[in-house]
Design a protein around this nucleic acid. Structure first.
Length: 220
DNA sequence: GACCAGGCACATC
DNA sequence: GATGTGCATGGT
C-alpha cells in the first residue's frame, strides 16, 4: 500500500540501487523458453556456469522443448554438466518439460494466459520447482507481476534491518508485493539490482565500505 | 585449498 | 514446523 513506512524504505532502497548501478535489463536470455531453462539451471549456482550449459545446448540447436524431451535423461545431464548438480537438474528439467507439454501443449501463449495464482500453484507441484524458480519463470519469462526472492534479497534486507533474519520466502515476498505497485518492470529491475548488489558487495563476508548502501540503516 | 554461487527435496526430530 | 543433508561444477 502506498505511503506506508515500509513502502518508503523500499522506494529509497530501489532509488539508491538504481543510482548506483542503473538498469540491469534482466533476465539474460534470448527467448522465454531459455529463461525458463535458466531458472532451473541456476538453482544455487553461479550464472556463469549456467551460461556455459545453455550455450552448449543452443549451439547444438537443442534448446527447445521437443529435443530436450526426446533426449535421454543421462544425455541431458551430460549437456548441462557445467551447471553443476547435473543429475538432479536433468530430472528437474524433464519434470518441467512433462508439465509444459501436459498442461500447455508446449505453448507459451497457453501458459501465459493462465490465471496467475493457479499457475504459480501449478508450477509448485512440479518436483524441482520451488518458489524462487516458479516466480522467476512467472516474472521474467511470462512477464507476470510476482516478486522474486532469493538468497541475496534475504541477506540484504536482514542486514539493513528491513526484515528479520529468520523470515520465510512468503514473508519476504509479501514485504515487496504489499508495499509496491504490482508493476512487472519494477519487480524485474528491483530483483536484478538486489542480485547485482549482492554479487558485488553483500557476500557472506561483506565488502563494505565501498558498498553503495554502506551505513544505510546501520548495516554491519 | 578454502570459499562461494540468482534452491530444492527429503529425512528426521 | 524447524533443522540438517545431499546434490557438483567452475571461478576467485
Amino acid at each position: 500500500m502506498a505511503g506506508s513506512r515500509m513502502g518508503d524504505l523500499l522506494k529509497e532502497l530501489y532509488q539508491k540501487l538504481w543510482e548506483a548501478f542503473g538498469p540491469q535489463g534482466w533476465w539474460p536470455g534470448e527467448t522465454p523458453f531459455e529463461v525458463m531453462m535458466g531458472a532451473i539451471l541456476t538453482q544455487n549456482t553461479n550464472w556463469r556456469n549456467v551460461a556455459q550449459a545453455l550455450k552448449a545446448l543452443k549451439d547444438a540447436d537443442l534448446l527447445n522443448p521437443r529435443d530436450l524431451r526426446e533426449m535421454p535423461e543421462a544425455e541431458l545431464a551430460r549437456w548441462i554438466r557445467p551447471a553443476g548438480y547435473f543429475n538432479v537438474k536433468a530430472r528437474r528439467v524433464k519434470n518441467f518439460l512433462d508439465f509444459f507439454a501436459r498442461q500447455f501443449q508446449d505453448s507459451l501463449a497457453e501458459m501465459a494466459g493462465a490465471d496467475l495464482e493457479s499457475l504459480r500453484a501449478a508450477l509448485l507441484t512440479v518436483k524441482g520447482i520451488g518458489p524462487e524458480t516458479a516466480d522467476s519463470i512467472l516474472l521474467y519469462a511470462l512477464h507476470r507481476p510476482t516478486f522474486v526472492v532469493d538468497a541475496y534479497t534475504h541477506r540484504i534486507l536482514s542486514r539493513h534491518h528491513l526484515a528479520p533474519e529468520a523470515c520465510s520466502y512468503e514473508e519476504l515476498q509479501s514485504l515487496f508485493m504489499e508495499n509496491l505497485p504490482p508493476e512487472v518492470s519494477l519487480y524485474q529491475e528491483f530483483h536484478a539490482l538486489l542480485v547485482r548488489l549482492g554479487k558485488e558487495y553483500c557476500r557472506p563476508r561483506p565488502r563494505c565500505p565501498a558498498c553503495p548502501l554502506h551505513e544505510w540503516r546501520s548495516a554491519g
